[in-house]
């Protein structure tokens, strides 16, 4: 798919979609959205970029193997989930900071868990799609 329209559009779509995925990630606690959906949207952004500009270009853009995002995200999710254990609460209990942060809103362990999920989903999806399209 080497059309000029698609190629030009993908350049604008990539930052837009990544930004939108972050928005979806942040609103996810009480409203529809969250880490999983956000991660999927972000990976769609990279997939569109790879369709338009070729796989090598996208890999160059990401600068690291997408598989590396999996352990990072998992570690973040574990730490967020296990953080209540350190103060004697049960696993996965939501801990919240007192004051809301501007733009983001309330920050708590659930947000970090979602951020971990976001990274894992991007890592997994991109690894699967890159692997399949490489071997085809």
């Amino acid at each position: 798919m080497k059309t000029l329209i698609f190629k030009t559009a993908s350049g604008y779509l990539l930052p837009l979609l990544v930004l939108f995925s972050v928005f979806i990630l942040l609103r996810g606690h009480y409203l529809p959205g969250g880490g999983f959906v956000g991660g999927l949207i972000a990976s769609i952004a990279f997939v569109i970029h790879s369709f338009a500009n070729g796989l090598e270009e996208t890999k160059h853009l990401i600068k690291m193997h997408p598989g590396f995002l999996m352990p990072v995200g998992l570690l973040l999710a574990i730490l967020a989930g296990a953080s209540p254990l350190f103060i004697g609460e049960t696993f996965m209990t939501g801990l919240w900071f007192e004051n809301p942060v501007p733009v983001i809103g309330m920050v708590g362990s659930a947000l970090f868990f979602d951020l971990g999920v976001y990274l894992v989903v991007i890592g997994v999806t991109l690894t699967i799609i890159f692997t399949i399209s490489e071997t085809l």
């Binding site: 574990i78 989930g81 296990a82 209540p84 254990l85 004697g88 049960t90 696993f91």
Partner: peptide, 14 residues
């Protein structure tokens, strides 16, 4: 109640 019984699971994951 014992919040730490999930540790065998968590530690393998870690």
């Amino acid at each position: 109640t014992n919040p730490y019984i999930v540790l065998p699971v968590l530690f393998q994951l870690l």
